[in-house]
Amino acid sequence: MLNNIRCGTCSALLFKAGQGAIANDIEIKCRRCGTLNHLRPCEPLHDRQERPKRNNSCGSTSP
């Protein structure tokens, strides 16, 4: 299923994209009003592994 990506100012159709099609930041200029639209993926790319969770958040070793 394709999603309509529209201009934030005038709601003109910019393009259609499938789920997960945007892999990085995009700048696209609206052909109707000239607004520069900045788009980014819904979920960030996971370049590194997450840290293991600990019981204490401050790093202190005292009880």
Results as ranks from 00 to 15, higher is better:
Ser62Tyr: 06
Leu45Met: 09
Leu2Thr: 10
Gly8Glu: 09
Gly59Val: 00
Cys58Ile: 01
Leu45Cys: 06
Ser57Ala: 08
Pro52Ile: 02
Ala23Lys: 15
Leu13Pro: 02
Asn56Leu: 05
Asn4Met: 00
Asn4Cys: 03
Ile5Ser: 04
Gln19Val: 14
Asn55Thr: 11
Ile5Ala: 02
Leu13Asn: 03
Glu50Trp: 04
Leu45His: 10
Glu27Cys: 08
Glu27Phe: 09
Pro44Lys: 06
Ser60Gly: 07
Asp25Pro: 14
Cys30Pro: 01
Glu27Gly: 02
Gly34Trp: 01
Glu43Asn: 14
Lys16Thr: 07
Lys29Gly: 04
Thr61Tyr: 06
Ser11Tyr: 04
Arg6Ile: 07
Pro41His: 11
Arg51Asn: 08
Met1Gly: 13
Ala23Arg: 15
Arg51Gly: 04
Ile28His: 15
Glu43Asp: 12
Leu45Gln: 10
Ile5Phe: 05
Cys10Val: 03
Asn37Ser: 13
Ala17Lys: 10
Gln49His: 12
Ala17Ile: 06
Gly34Tyr: 00
Leu45Tyr: 09
Cys58Tyr: 07
Ser62Pro: 00
Phe15Gly: 04
Pro44Gln: 07
Glu27Tyr: 09
Gly59Arg: 01
Leu45Ser: 10
Ser60Gln: 05
Cys7Ser: 00
Ser57Phe: 06
Cys42Met: 15
Cys7Tyr: 03
Gly18Pro: 05
Lys16Trp: 02
Ile26Cys: 12
Cys33Tyr: 01
Cys42Val: 15
Leu13Gln: 03
Pro41Val: 13
Gly59Gln: 03
His46Lys: 14
Ser11Ile: 00
Gly20Leu: 10
Leu13Ile: 06
Asp25Gly: 10
Arg40Met: 12
Thr35Ile: 02
Leu39Tyr: 03
Asn55Tyr: 05
Asn56Gly: 04
Glu50Gln: 08
Arg32Asn: 11
Leu14Trp: 05
